[in-house]
């Protein structure tokens, strides 16, 4: 794609980005930041492209490091955001019993 078309896409995306999050209550700032954080993990696609074209071992190693880091960003970002949002929606009737069961967050995370 030529430079001008890419520039066009860039400018339009800036406006879309401004527009979609213009009014967000502070309640959702954390999940939104975390979700946006996960989205830029899509740089994994770029890392795969580079790794897929690598011919020298050194290039491949650096590219694989990029793949690893991007995977952590992408996968971890979406999982952690989902966990956060699960807590907003997961409000069940027996609140107290639940609260005690949740007292060990580590065990809870593993159990899920």
């Amino acid at each position: 794609m030529d430079a001008m078309s890419l520039l066009t896409v860039f400018v339009l995306a800036v406006f879309v980005g401004f527009e979609v999050v213009s009014k967000v209550s502070s309640t959702l700032h954390t999940p939104l930041m975390s979700g946006a954080n996960a989205i830029h993990g899509i740089v994994l696609v770029g890392a795969i492209i580079v790794a897929g074209q690598a011919e020298e071992p050194l290039v491949l190693i650096v590219a694989l490091i990029a793949v690893l880091l991007a995977t952590v960003n992408l996968v971890g970002g979406f999982v952690v955001t989902d966990r956060m949002l699960h807590m907003f929606s997961g409000r069940k009737a027996p609140a107290k019993a639940d609260a005690r069961a949740d007292a060990q967050p580590v065990a809870k995370g593993a159990a899920k």
Binding site: M1, L6, V9, F10, A13, V14, F15, V16, G17, F18, V20, V21, S22, V24, H29, L32, M33, A36, N37, I39, H40, I42, V43, V45, G46, I49, V50
Partner: peptide, 26 residues
Amino acid sequence: AASGLVLGNVLLLVAGTLVGASGTIL
């Protein structure tokens, strides 16, 4: 977004720009 420009990959460009713009507002 810039790495999308480098690779000529529109998806990276759009996704990165979205995060850049929304992150700035946030």
